[in-house]
Design a protein around this nucleic acid. Structure first.
Lengths: 207, 207, 207, 207
DNA sequence: TATGAATGAGTTTTCATTCAT
DNA sequence: AATGAATGAAAACTCATTCAT
């Protein structure tokens, strides 16, 4: 009983994992359902027991992988010897970690960015997945909470985060994948500066 | 002779125009070359006399449409009664015009954004098209020149523009198409503030 | 024990009934075994414990439904106030009842006719089903018997019945479903006349 | 030009002919479009240039084959040494010819009857096909005309013909394919008698 | 008995591209 | 240059049937 259910979870995982490898390897359009099934060690028809079609699987995958990346970044920061002093420092460290990671995994970047929207991100944050030890939502809530204890004031803190994430991801996409207008390395200081400035824009004016 | 040449231009135009309508109407993937040819009043084989494949046509189309949009914005600003006082004002007016335009033409937004990269943009700016009275390159050069006469200083002014454009387009995409995390209208003040701050970051520190 | 047996009968009935609804609703070819099982509240595999395949079930269904229709017609005639005077009157009343019924249940007509053959009919008549209070065979025998006490003479009375039933059902099919070459209403007098004539052909020539 | 058009006609013919053989050989459901194309010496995709799907081709085929059969019967009767004296004789000879033909081509019978309706028949009669030297419509008109010069009177002569054809085809189907309730040979005299009687029913009552 | 996950052969359908005219 | 018939590989999706539980 539990065994059957476990088995299904494994199949689902296998499909996700192998689809991911194929998407990243040869692109979404050039990956067929037959490919995914075969690589997962399953029959073609079995795919349809788990997902409606390729797009269905992709959406779950994008949300999942983005979430994992954020979680991983989080863990990596925790493991750092030197402490992070304030919110800005924390935010920049997080972004650097993620962009550097994506620099080394360009296909993941390509896959995620073309398909990730703020909406999917929000959805991923809000619907806890049964699979991963899910503190994604928690991380997000921590962010919002941390923001309150900063000198920044934003009527809607989500908008601030949205602005910064969109900036980082779209410039990251271009610099990493096309080195246009310059390399990521060259661009990072500019990105830091812009983020700093954006945050400054929300600094509380003291009374 | 000139007549033949003209005829070819017309066919090319027809292909572009009808392909655009189809892409916007049913999406790029679901538009076939047969569709494009038929709607253009041409035979399928004829398509290949003008473009290598769908992607070839698309790239030209994206660059062309983006360029047109920028030109149109430029013209609209020129036609305004009240003058624009400085670079920042000009930049914001330009961005507002474009985002508002895209708000009313969501399908164009969808089509352009998913396919436009800074690289294509640069390419469009640099290769003068025979078709339109092309002052796109000129506009861009004017920008860079205008920047020199501002209190902002940027080693690579292209990077500044890149940052602002990426920010505007990616946040515009999300707010217009998904109203996430909020509507464009609601977001614009935030966008203005962020752009202002980014520019401030490059303000010359006087000696 | 009897409870187990009853349970099996219920499942069988459920399969028949729901399969019938589906066949009539979306057609035989477009109804899957999975559909039938699901609508019957059973698992797919269970289907195979009761029927070899879809065709097996269909054959039982066609015979069953035709039989029910004849029985119902019979009952309806019995309940009529005015008596039926002779064999011809009886036969025509029976046919009218059935065609009018099918007129109101076109899908049943479609389903039965496309699949009913004289062979299946004979089989239904001859193998008493456990389910219905089965006087179908009895009805048939009564027919043959009644025929003997009529002025008609037929070496093989089955052939006479066959002729009339085939005529009525095939013309009924066309007039009811396609109103071609005319409506059932318009055609009925012609049908009556033809049946009358056919019977006359078998009238005993007196010695 | 004419060559291209001719070529298309040949392809169409080839598809029809080979589809027919396959339908008759292994049944409609078990014949795939791939089969038809391959046997016709064409690529799978080519099929779709000529027919929307299998059903589209089938409908054309049923009408075509029925028409051919009638034409052939017509020709055969013309070639007979002894003349046919009156309408009834003619009608019976025609029916006999066709039923005997179908007796020898049971699969054709199966294919045609399951799919032929009076509607399709009427349609075939009324829409002259470019392919065959088409006197099908003419034959039909001759029938109706001949009927006028007979002692039979029918307000709507189409209804008379309909009645007889439906009777002949449905009883033919059963006796030929299932020998139920008897063989065609055994049944023919009964069929003749019934048709004779039906015609008598329409005999003009002299003034 | 009953279940329903798994199978994979089978079928339809699409469409970019070629090429003879 | 232009045509559009032909191609056939490729892909999605279905579903009867099996079988371990």
């Amino acid at each position: 009983m539990g065994k059957v259910e476990l088995n299904k979870q494994n199949k689902r995982s296998s499909l996700l994992q192998h689809a991911y490898e194929l998407f990243v390897d040869r692109g979404f359009n050039k990956t067929t359902i037959a490919d995914i099934a075969k690589h997962s060690g399953l029959a073609k028809g079995t795919f349809y027991l788990y997902y409606k079609d390729k797009y269905d699987l992709r959406d779950e995958l994008v949300a999942r992988k983005s979430g994992q990346l954020i979680l991983e970044a989080q863990e990596a920061l925790k493991a750092r010897p030197e402490p992070l002093n304030d919110f800005e420092e924390y935010l920049l460290a997080m972004i650097d970690y993620i962009l550097n990671y994506l620099q080394r995994n360009k296909m993941l970047l390509k896959f995620i960015t073309k398909n990730l929207s703020w909406g999917i991100f929000k959805h991923a944050v809000e619907t806890p997945s049964a699979l991963e030890s899910d503190n994604l939502g928690e991380i997000y809530r921590n962010y919002l909470h941390a923001l309150e204890n900063t000198p920044y004031q934003c009527a809607n803190p989500e908008i601030l985060l949205f602005t910064i994430i969109e900036l980082a991801s779209s410039t990251g996409y271009s610099t990493i994948l096309y080195e246009s207008p310059c390399s990521l390395e060259e661009y990072l200081p500019h990105l830091h500066q812009s983020i700093h400035q954006i945050l400054e824009g929300y600094r509380k004016t003291e009374g």
